[in-house]
């Protein structure tokens, strides 16, 4: 009888276990952020009464208000006869040589023949230039409203 008690017939297990808890705190993620505003002295009247082949440029400022560096691109849709161009640097005295914007985002360049997009670091600000150009075949008394979308995408 004593032997039966010791043998534990049936294969029962007595596996030990224990656990330890550590407080490693928490991690939180940031956000991207991009703001655009016209530079001081902006005047919408500058784009009024333009003649065919005329161009007018006005500066704007982009600010990275987020936590990541971003590469920039832009898109815009204007009425027939009007073209919108953009440059990721200060306005030159002559017409912009960059391609006219359309509804598809195109990279924002610091110079017309650059191949890499402009990037902006967190907390940094960038001066850009927006140009409205009236095409040669624009109809008299025509007008256009447009909106510019500048897209920032995180870079490594």
């Amino acid at each position: 009888m004593l032997g039966v008690v010791l043998s534990g017939v049936g294969g029962s297990y007595a596996l030990w276990n224990d656990s330890a808890v550590v407080d490693a705190g928490s991690i939180s993620t940031g956000t991207p952020g991009l703001e655009a505003q016209w530079a001081a002295g902006h005047d919408d009247a500058l784009w009024q009464n333009l003649l065919p082949e005329e161009s007018r440029r006005q500066p704007f400022t982009l600010t990275n208000t987020g936590d990541v560096p971003m590469a920039l691109s832009a898109s815009a849709v204007a009425a027939p006869g009007f073209e919108v161009r953009i440059l990721g640097s200060s306005c030159p005295t002559s017409a912009l040589a960059t391609s006219a914007l359309n509804g598809t985002p195109t990279v924002l360049l610091a110079a017309a023949f650059d191949t890499e997009p402009v990037t902006i670091a967190p907390g940094a600000a960038l001066s850009g230039c927006l140009e409205v150009h009236v095409a040669a075949d624009a109809m008299p008394a025509s007008e256009s409203t447009f909106s510019i979308t500048i897209d920032g995408r995180q870079t490594t």
Partner: peptide, 25 residues
């Protein structure tokens, strides 16, 4: 990808467990 903005991951109760793995007696 933007779903992870303003996200948080809490590691304030990370648990390590030790378990015996003895053979059947």
């Amino acid at each position: 990808p933007n779903i992870s903005q303003n996200a948080s991951v809490d590691f304030d109760s990370v648990s390590f467990t030790v378990t015996q793995t003895a053979a059947m007696v």
